[in-house]
Each structure stands twice: as structure tokens, then as C-alpha cells.
Design a binder for these strands. Structure first.
Lengths: 241, 241
DNA sequence: TGACGCCAATCTGTGCAGGCATGAAGTCTC
DNA sequence: GAGACTTCATGCCTGCACAGATTGGCGTCA
């Protein structure tokens, strides 16, 4: 529940753009938004500036606020990711993020094995053990939270802040999967072992093993859910000069 | 050259935060910024909102505008990336982006081989040929631009909009490398071949080959410039609940 | 007559100035 | 130490002037 008018305005307009209620190319007027939400110009203008910085709109004089097409949106903006996950475009967003995971997490595991501080290793080992316990006892909710923390920790342990920053959307992805019932009834025994292997390899500072085990996890993950977006069209916007 | 007061204000404050002129934890007042830039409250407020959406600041009542530490910045925000590349933190930003490239580009090549439309294939082949020509004739400037377009095109051809969106910062990275004199005097013959191989594999729709050739390129790239950031400290912020 | 080019009216965002409301910090009192 | 009070910067609102882009009308010329 957004508590400031500013947040509410950003949310109101942004979510409608991302879910398609306001089509690309459409032009809206600041005064429209004022009326719809019953807020003043300053609130609307600040909200529009934020949306513009995310690539959702451009505002030009004499014409108004033009809604930009999806290829102009910043797909890494936390707001955009959240709105996409919450909307009909869920499948496409899940695919993009999962493909990104498949690319990034093995690299993150490799870097973590090279650079992770000791306290991260200890916590990773502890999390892997807890995951095994929760997985075997069938406590899916606990397993999910541990899984999220595990992957976030590997990303952070890589020492690459761009990787670390992907933890939040990836966590949302995992939550989204369980909500959609795309997780196996109980975690595979192999998955539990692979997570343990990743933690072991990072703790032992063996980059190749860490990468290999994480690759196994990602390959399996990708298989399990690639059906969701099978029919989602891919977009190929040509790069601009 | 920013033409609106808003852009100027965002630029002024944001770049000073990123380059460290304004330290994390410091608190600035909106009225300060007004005086510094000679602009009105509305301009400052809109700028602050944009900076807040990038995670650079938070503004609280009775306190002012608090500058957040780097781990709170959104490392994927285009503004943040630009400011980091332009500032003393260049080394760290170059490392993050390069590690991201190493992770993402092979995957992008693989996906491109699976999904790329025909017109992308044709252009890739053409670019590879032009790169070979420019490389052998020693025209570094032309080679750089072709290289940027080539990698941007592979990312776009993956059909993953998050990958495609990385084209701009990656292009900046490549330009940054040449400006720093980190590129070889003339491109290696092997590099020319590998680019050709990537284009061929994508056009022939052979994902494994595309990935393999791109991995070679990335491995070489990483070797060539990892010296730049050798002394740059890695940061390991613990993931928050 | 019809097409082109120029100019003014108009519309909307941009920026300014000032006002009151709100709520978090710090202070004082008990 | 807990609660009420004061303080002060941001949150939010409003009226005004300005700038820039679009539109439509006007006149000219082919």
C-alpha cells in the first residue's frame, strides 16, 4: 500500500502502461491524471518524471505525455520488473529473467568461489543444510525462502554489484513460480545435492566446480518451466544507432 | 549538453554523488540545491524524485535528502552507469560490466542461433566481413564501431529484451577500452575469425557453436583488460531480508 | 482551382513563487 | 524513562508567466 501520493501516482500510471491498459503511442494529459487521482500538478509532474526516467513515457510540449512502446522501457528497472511480473506479460518476464539467471548464476558461483569472504561460505553451507532438511520434510514454504536466500547470497558473494542487484527480481521469480504451481511437489534429491555442491565448491574455493554445479541447477530449472512461455512471442527490436 | 533545467539538476547532483564529491550518509537540503543551481523548488523536487528512483538518495521529512551508499544504487540504471564510467570508479564499473558480458553474451549467441530472424543473420554476416576488412587494414576507429554494432546485434537477436538492453552500456564499455588504450594495436586474426564463426553459427542455427565461439571472444577480452581493475576492491554487501 | 509556404493563435509542458499541512526529531516536562 | 510539545524540512497545493510545438488560416504562386 503506497502511502505517499507520489508513489500512488507512479503506481497508478506505470502499472496501467505495463499491463497494456494504456497502449503504446497513446497520449495522455497531465490534467487527466490530476482528475483521475484527485491530486495536484506537482504530484503528477514528479510521477511523470520518474516514469520518463524508466523509459515508459516522454513528455513534449503542446502534445502531452506519450506512452512509449515496450522496447523503450528499461527492463532492469525494479518498478518495470514488478509491474511486468504482476501483469499479463508474466510469461515473457519470467522467460527473460530465467534466461538471465542461466547466464549469470554460474558465473556468479565461479566468482564467488574465487572471492567470497569466509562468513559468506559459512552461511552458504548452513543454508544448503537447511534446504536439505526443509526439502526432505516437504516444507515447501520454508524451502522457497531458503532457496531465495541461497541464490541471493551466491550473487552477493560474487562481489559484482550488478549480479548482487539481480537478487530481488530473481527472488520474485522464484516466488512467482511457486504461486503458479511450477515447482515440483517436493524438491528433487539431486537439486538438494547440487546446492550442497555449490556451497562446498565455493567454500573450498574451486571455481570450476562451483560453476559446474550451478549450471546443473540452472539447466534443470530452465527445463522445468520453459513450457510457461513457449507460446510467448519474442521481440526483436533492431538496435538503434 | 542538458537543455532542460531538470536534466541539469539531475546531472549536477547525481554525478557528484556517484563520483564521491557528496559522500554517502551526507544530508543535503533541497534549498541548498536551489541556491547552488539558481533554480526553483519544483525543479529540485522533480530531480530528487528521479535520483531517489535510482536509489541514490532518500528524502525524509524534517531531515532532508540523505545520500545513500553505493550498494543501494541501482547498478543497471543508465544514468548511474554513465556517471560511474565517467568518474574515478571507472575500473570497478568496467569490471562489473565485463563480467556481465562474459556471462551474458555466450548465452545471447546461443539464443540468437535458435531464434534470430533472417535479416539479423544477414546483417551479422555482413558486419563480420566488414570487421575483418577494417581489422586487417588497421582502421581501429571503424573496427570499434563495427564491433559495437556486432555485439549489440547479437544481443538483440537473442530475443531477450534484458540482453538487448545491455547493448548500450556494453558499447560504452568498448569505447572506454579504446580510449584507455586497452585494445590491441590491431585486432588479432583469431578474434576476427571468432566473430566470423559466431555469425556463421547463428546464421546456420547451431546454438552450441555460437556459444562456443562467443565464449572464446569473451575469454580473450576478459584476459586483455582484467589488469585494469586488479586493485579495485570488491564489495560484499550482505543481502537484506 | 489547388498546392505550397508562412504566420499567428492555441495548447500543454516547464519553471517560478508562495502558501499551508504533515510528520519525524529533538526538547522539555513530569 | 514516558509522554506532550516545539521545530523544521519535506509533502502537497495553487496561481502565474513562459517556451515550444502543432494547427489552421491566410496569401501567394503555378
Amino acid at each position: 500500500m503506497p502511502n505517499s501520493l507520489h508513489q500512488r501516482a507512479v503506481e497508478h500510471v506505470g502499472s496501467r502502461i505495463v499491463d497494456g491498459s494504456i497502449a503504446a503511442g497513446e497520449v495522455i494529459l497531465a490534467s487527466q491524471i490530476e482528475d483521475e487521482l484527485g491530486v495536484s500538478r506537482s504530484v503528477v509532474r514528479e510521477a511523470v518524471r520518474v516514469l520518463a526516467s524508466a523509459g515508459l513515457v516522454v513528455s513534449t510540449k503542446r502534445v502531452g505525455i506519450r506512452v512509449l512502446p515496450p522496447e523503450d522501457w528499461n527492463p532492469f528497472d525494479p518498478l518495470v520488473i514488478r509491474w511486468r511480473l504482476a501483469s499479463g506479460g508474466l510469461g515473457a518476464q519470467l522467460r527473460s529473467l530465467t534466461e538471465l539467471r542461466v547466464a549469470v548464476e554460474p558465473m556468479a558461483a565461479e566468482l564467488a568461489a574465487e572471492h567470497a569472504p569466509d562468513e559468506f561460505c559459512g552461511e552458504l553451507l548452513s543454508l544448503a543444510a537447511q534446504m536439505r532438511h526443509a526439502g526432505r520434510s516437504g516444507d515447501l514454504a520454508a524451502f522457497l525462502e531458503l532457496d531465495i536466500r541461497f541464490h541471493a547470497l551466491v550473487l552477493a558473494a560474487s562481489g559484482n554489484e550488478m549480479f548482487a542487484n539481480l537478487a530481488h527480481p530473481i527472488g520474485e521469480t522464484l516466488r512467482g513460480r511457486t504461486e503458479l504451481g511450477l515447482m515440483p511437489e517436493r524438491p528433487h534429491e539431486e537439486a538438494l545435492t547440487w546446492h550442497q555442491d555449490v556451497a562446498d565448491a565455493i567454500s573450498a574455493h574451486v571455481p570450476q566446480d562451483a560453476r559446474a554445479s550451478m549450471e546443473k541447477i540452472m539447466r534443470r530449472t530452465n527445463q522445468e518451466i520453459c513450457g510457461v512461455w513457449a507460446e510467448q512471442p519474442r521481440l526483436f527490436p533492431h538496435p538503434k544507432a
